[in-house]
Structures are given as C-alpha cells and as structure tokens.
C-alpha cells in the first residue's frame, strides 16, 4: 500500500509539472504579447523590451519552464538580473521556495495571491459539498426505497429541474429573490472566520454554496438512487433478510455500505475539482476566490498567476484521485494495491 501511494504521488508530480509546461506553451504560442499588458499607457519600445526581459518572456518556453520549476524547489528572485541587483537591490522582489512565480500586474508573488484567495474558494466548495452530500444522498436513498411512488418521482423530477438550469441562472435567482427582494437572507459577502467568526462566515457562504449544491444535487440523487437499487438486488441482502435481521439494520449495515462506496469515489473527485475554484458561482456572488482570479489573470495575460492557479487546481484534482483510490481500499477489503 505504501509503495502504491509513493508510486501514485510520484506520477502525480510528474503530471503537474507537465501541465504547467502545457499551460506555458499555450501562452507562449498566443499572438498577443503578454509584456504589453505590463507596460501601461506610456509604453516605449525600450520599456517593453525591459519588461519582457524582466518577466523572462524573451527566453524559449522550455527554459522559462525550467526556471519556474527550479523556483518551486529553491526559490527565485524577480526580475532575475544580477546587474540590477547590484545597482538597485530594493527593486528586486524575493520569492522564496516554493516559489510559484511573480505577478507583474499585481506586483506580488503568486503564492501570496493564492494563499489569499484559496480559503474563499475552499470554503465555498466545502460548504456546498456538505449540503449536496446530505441532501443528494439522503434524497437518493429515500427515492430508491420508495421506488415507483409519487415521492420517488417528485424527488427525481425536481432534481432534474435544477440540473437543467444553468448555474448563473440559479445563482442570480437565489440572489435576487432570497437576498434582495424578499430579504430572507442577508446579501452574501465573504467574511473570513478570522474577521467575522464562524457565524458571519457561514452566513456569507449560504447562498453561493446553495447555488453550487443545487447544481450537484441532481446528479447525486440519481447516482445514489441507482446504486441503492442495485445493492437491493444483491444476493447478500437476501441473505441478510434470511438471517432474520431487522429492516433498519439491513438498510444501514448491509445495503448502504455497498451502495455508497462508489458515491464516495465520485464525491471525492467532485470536491477535488471544486477546491481549485468555481468560476461562475464566484462571479455571480462577487466572491474573490481562485475562480475569479483565474479569469482575471487569463484576460490580462498574467501568465504567472494563470500557471499558479492551474497548478493548485491540478494538485487538488490529482490528490483527490489518489485519496479516493486509497479510500477505496479502506472501504472495500477486496481492493488491494501492490
């Protein structure tokens, strides 16, 4: 098992580095000159050239990538210019390891930006995750147990309605009606726990998390329903019944244990995917998380920030994959990794 994890983590790291290279190649292949975006109104060709050199955009993409990768392990400085460091050391920004680059547009190390925005996105993802897991799995179980009845059809049908609407529509709908028009909940705004305590933090998360959860619930209801129905047809449930077990015990110990294992897999992957930022929900609720930052960075040709967020998001997805696979071996004794 340990060897398996080591192998997976090593493969994951290679994959992350490869992804950073791909992002850079795409960026370098773009016809737009990224240095132009750092130069402002009073740009001169000399200044442009200077900025390009300072940002490292004058080198081939591969050596840019090597510099970047080195920075992760040993740190870096921006701009990388020994002459300038001697003449004006105050203009050099230090970026200790693990250095994810330096954003010229916001004049900050990328890592600082990510550290600032990540909690926003992560709070949103985790809050939404908890909501959709409880509601989606719960309703899915109810629908499966009441298969074919009105309850079943009502649950599956209404879930489908939310699934069919685009995220921004649900988000704006909740925002306009619940917060602005009827005032049932306060207008959402992110407040960190440090600033406003758990209460305000949760209050701010309510609507955006609900939006995100509503989008995911439908899938989880259908998935849970299908897996519970499948598990109900298993021979081992007939055995459990033939033993004389009570129906509650049959459901919770025997049916759900089998049915929910594949759900754990999907849930882990979905959560991993969301931790790296949600673009639409963050936009709608004006949440300053990784998703919105990524959109900003991409539209202003801020390569370092784009690469940084891609790496963070990829790390979450890959980690989630590994965690889910390892979890599987824990849940299902038949699964053995070697």
């Amino acid at each position: 098992m340990f060897a398996y994890i080591v192998r997976r983590v090593a493969a994951g790291m290679v994959m992350i580095l490869a992804m950073s290279l791909v992002t850079m190649v795409l960026f370098f292949a773009s016809p737009v000159d990224p240095a132009r975006y750092t130069c402002g109104k009073n740009c001169t060709p000399e200044l442009l050239e200077q900025n390009r050199k300072a940002l490292g955009y004058d080198q081939p993409v591969l050596s840019y990538w090597v510099d970047f990768t080195k920075g992760i392990f040993v740190g870096s400085e921006f701009p990388k210019d020994p002459a300038l460091k001697k003449s004006a050391p105050e203009t050099i920004a230090d970026c200790p390891a693990p250095c994810l680059g330096y954003s010229p547009q916001s004049s900050r190390p990328v890592r600082d930006i990510i550290v600032e925005k990540l909690p926003v996105s992560a709070s949103l993802a985790i809050a939404a995750f908890i909501m959709w897991m409880i509601a989606g799995v719960g309703l899915g179980i109810v629908a499966a147990l009441r298969k074919g009845t009105l309850v079943d059809r009502a649950i599956v049908g209404s879930a489908l309605v939310f699934y069919a609407f685009p995220t921004f529509f649900i988000g704006l709908g909740l925002y306009v009606f619940l917060a602005l028009k009827w005032g049932i909940v306060p207008v959402p705004a992110y407040t960190s726990i440090a600033d406003g305590g758990v209460g305000l933090w949760l209050q701010g998360l309510l609507l955006p998390a609900l939006t995100l959860a509503l989008v995911y619930i439908a899938g989880y209801i259908r998935l849970t329903r299908a897996f519970v129905l499948e598990a109900k047809g298993e021979d081992y449930l007939r055995t459990a019944q033939a033993k004389g077990l009570k129906s509650g015990r049959i459901l919770f110990k025997h049916t759900l244990r089998g049915a929910l294992t594949p759900i754990a897999t999907v849930a882990g992957l979905d959560l991993g995917g969301l931790l790296g930022g949600t673009i639409i929900t963050e936009q709608v609720f004006n949440y300053d998380g990784l998703g919105r930052t990524a959109v900003m960075a991409a539209t202003t040709y801020d390569l370092p920030v784009t690469v940084g967020i891609v790496l963070v998001a990829a790390t979450f997805v890959i980690t989630a994959n590994i965690v889910v696979d390892v979890l599987y071996a824990v849940i299902d004794p038949r699964v053995k990794y070697s």
Binding site: D235, Y236, T239, H254, R257, G258
Partner: peptide, 16 residues
C-alpha cells in the same frame, strides 16, 4: 428456518 444459497460469493457481504 434457515437458508443456504447457491453462490456463496455473492450471498456473503464482501465488506464484512
């Protein structure tokens, strides 16, 4: 009254 099933692999719960 107890029962013995045909296929013991599927009649026993794999997780316990």
């Amino acid at each position: 009254i107890a029962m013995i099933f045909q296929d013991p692999l599927s009649a026993l719960h794999p997780y316990y």
